[in-house]
Design a protein around this nucleic acid. Structure first.
Ligand code: FES
Ligand code: FES
Lengths: 163, 163
DNA sequence: CCATTCAGGACCGCGCCAGTCCTGTTTTCG
DNA sequence: CGAAAACAGGACTGGCGCGGTCCTGAATGG
């Protein structure tokens, strides 16, 4: 499936939402404004806190705020914070498990390159790149500049694989 | 963990093993030479056959052989053959499922760029590149990373390499 | 002292994948 | 012509990882 966990999806939503308000925000407030169930939002925020992506404030009038600007958070870091290290197969270095057929395996150690390529792609995209800055549907009032290079790079090769 | 299924791992092993022998090979023989359990090898090869990656010959003295040269099979095609279309989240186009919080979601439709970047990376690496003797042709990964890079960077690199 | 809010777990049910197996069908060979 | 060899195409099931929830603390502010 090559699918990442649902919590990661929620995490991105929550982090982007956090960045859209300057002050501190409670988990309940974020749940209300995103539609994600409140316990799930709380769980995500706790993970994000221990990963150092958001800072928390306990007690009354407490809440969460981003620890770093959104542009300095690559998608890879969110994925790793929730799902653990990116390891496509059991045969990738830094993987926890070990491969049992490695003695006979003809592709031993060759997954590392694939893994690195994906990791690099995910490190290049920051959360700020995932925030819709209103250039596609129904432009907002302030169009600061014509954003070039919308990532519509679906080449013929890649679209051929989509289905 | 952004992990792909074990069957995909086996599929790569089996396909590479298929390429190392010129003649036709039985599923049992491949199982013996790779250490993968025979029923699993059979299952993988059936999927590969229906995907058009290997050709099969029934009956006594039958078996399997590669339908195309190893270098013309990207890793992405193997993954898609086994796991289905690559869709990181439920909110990616061409995904089967639908997202229920899309009305309030602040990152609606922004996963597509990430998905495309990964798809590009996986389409650039062929199975021939996974053989131990192969030269791995991806452009330089470990450049100093710009955290606020535009999301088209990875795609631009890979597509530029294809030309 | 009390309300609020986060911290850090434990907990459970569901869905999905891995692995096996069974019943055909096709082909070759004695 | 029959039997064996080998693939085709499913059904089936157990395990387990993930999602979602909840509960008991601890910190903070009024
Ligand atoms: S499958 Fe583990 S080393 Fe190749
Ligand atoms: S989470 Fe589905 S559209 Fe954003």
């Amino acid at each position: 499936m090559l699918r990442l966990s649902k919590l990661t999806d929620y995490a991105v939503v929550v982090l982007v939402r956090l960045s859209e308000e300057s002050g501190i925000q409670t988990s309940g407030g974020i749940a209300a404004s995103t539609g994600v169930p409140e316990p799930t939002v709380a769980k995500v925020l706790k993970i994000m806190t221990s990963a150092g992506l958001v800072a928390s404030q306990r007690g009354a009038r407490g809440g969460y705020r981003l620890a770093r600007p959104l542009a300095t958070i690559p998608v890879a870091e969110v994925i790793i914070a929730i799902d653990g290290p990116i390891a496509l197969t059991a045969c990738v270095e830094h993987s926890t498990s070990v491969c049992d057929t490695s003695s006979l395996c003809p592709v031993k150690g060759r997954w590392d390159a694939v893994n690195t390529a994906i990791l690099d792609a995910l490190s290049t995209i920051s959360l700020a790149d995932m925030r819709p800055t209103a250039f596609f549907p129904l432009p907002a009032h302030h169009l600061p500049e014509k954003r070039d290079a919308v990532p519509t790079t679906a080449s013929a090769l890649t679209t051929a694989f989509l289905e």
